[in-house]
Amino acid sequence: MSTDQTPNTALSRRALLGGMAASPVALTLGGTVLSAGGLLPSLAQAQTTLKISHQFPGGTLTEGDFRDRLCRKFAAQVEAETKGALKFEVYPASSLMKTVAQLQALRKGALDFTLYPMPYGGGEIPEMNLGLMPCLVTSYEQGLAWKKKPIGEALTKALEAKGVKILTWVWQAGGVAARGTPVLHPADVKGIKIRGGSREMDMMFKAAGAAVSSIPSNEIYAGMQTGNLDAAVTSSTSLISFKLEEQSKSLTAARQKSFWYMLEPLMMSKIVFDGLPAAQQKALLTVGESLEPFGLEEARKDDQRVAEIYAKAGVKVVDMDDKVMDEWRAIARDTAWKDFADRSAEAAALLKLAEDVA
C-alpha cells in the first residue's frame, strides 16, 4: 500500500494509526477488523513504504553526516533482509516535519522512524532527559553499556509505554564552539549566552552564570551569525555538518574528555512496529542492532575530525582534562542531577541506575 494513496480509494495508514492511537475503538476496513492493539498481518504486509525523518544534512550511503548515512544503511539493509517487502524514504534536514514535532508524530504513528536527540523529548517523556545529563556519561563505553544494564531496561520500558521503540543505540560526545575565547572552566561561561542542548545542561550553565538558549542544533549557525548566541554545545558531528567553524574563534573539543554525551538513537513508532509481521519486526531489530558499531566508530572519528577541521580554519582548539571535568561535575550534581532526582521516587531510582554504570 503506497503512503500517497488518496482519501477516495483508501484510508491512509497514518490517518488510521493516528486515529487508533487516539481512541481505543476498533475500526473495520474492507471486512478486516483493526484495533488499537495492532494491525492484522494482511494489512500490515500491504504497507511497504516507511518514512525516516531527521534534522541533519542529507547525503548518500557513503558520504555526509554519519547519522544520515546510518538511516540510509538501515533502510537498504532492511529492504534487502525483507526482500523488498519493506521500503523506505529518508527525509533529512527536517524536510518532512519540524525537528521537535517528530517525537509526537512518532508516538501517534504519524511518523515511522526518527533519528532523534533524546533530550528534545524530555518535555513529553521526562525519562528522556537522562539522554543528556551533564557529566553523567563520560565515555562511549559507559553510554553503550546502558543498553544491557538495568538502566537500559528501565529506559526502554518507559519509552515503549509512551509509544517509542529504540532500534539503534547511538551515543555522541559534544564540544563547545564559541565566538570568543574558549569555554573550558565554569568561570568561562559567566555572562555569555550559550546553547546547551537540554534542560539539564542549561541548569548547569545557569548555575555557572550563563544565559541559555534552547534552540535545536540545526539553528545554531544562525544564532551565532546574528549574535544571539556566544557559544553552543553540540555533538562533534553537528559541529562539522553545520559548519560552525565559520562562526567560531575557539573550540573545546571532545576528543579527550567531555561533559556532554548525548543518546541520539534511531527510534521507531511502537504502533507501527506492532502492526508489522513478526519476520519484519525481527529484521528491523536485527539490522538496527547491527549498525551500533558503525555509529560508535563514526562518532569517534568525528571527535578527531572536528578538531582538525576547526584548526585548519584558524580556530583555537582546546581540550578538557579530568580536573576540568571535576569542576563541571560538582555543579551538575548540585543542579541538574538533584533536580531530576527530586521529581519523583521513580526519577531518583532511574538516576541511581545510570550512576551505577561505571
Rank of each mutant, 00 (worst) to 15 (best):
L39S: 00
M20W: 04
D65W: 09
L276Q: 00
E245P: 14
D188H: 08
A105I: 05
P92G: 01
E292Y: 12
V164Y: 07
K162T: 13
G288P: 01
D319K: 13
L291Y: 04
A75E: 05
P265L: 05
R179H: 11
A105Q: 04
E219S: 15
P216I: 07
M128N: 11
G275A: 05
A44P: 05
G175N: 06
I194Q: 05
K301I: 02
G109Y: 03
G288R: 02
R300Q: 12
R69W: 08
I331N: 05
T234H: 10
R329D: 11
M224P: 00
A210H: 03
K243T: 12
R255E: 14
I220R: 06
S23E: 12
S235D: 09
E297F: 00
K338V: 07
A299I: 06
M325W: 02
T82M: 03
A332Y: 02
G30R: 03
P7L: 11
P117F: 02
E200D: 15
G180V: 00
K190C: 10
L70M: 09
A207M: 03
L106A: 00
G209F: 08
Q77M: 13
G59S: 10
L132D: 07
S235R: 04
A211P: 01
E289Q: 15
T99W: 15
S94P: 07
S12Q: 13
T82C: 03
K249N: 00
A177M: 02
K190I: 08
T3Y: 14
G131Y: 04
G64N: 01
G152T: 04
F113E: 04
M268V: 08
K243P: 10
G19W: 06
A75V: 08
H54K: 07
L229G: 05
A222I: 08
F273E: 01
A349H: 09
V287I: 10
E79F: 14
L34N: 02
A332V: 06
T28F: 00
G209Y: 07
E292L: 08
A341S: 12
D303M: 09
A253P: 06
R72T: 07
L50M: 06
V170C: 00
A341P: 10
F242G: 04
L34V: 13
W260Q: 12
A15H: 15
A76S: 13
G174P: 04
K249Y: 00
I194M: 09
P57F: 08
N8F: 15
M20K: 10
D356N: 15
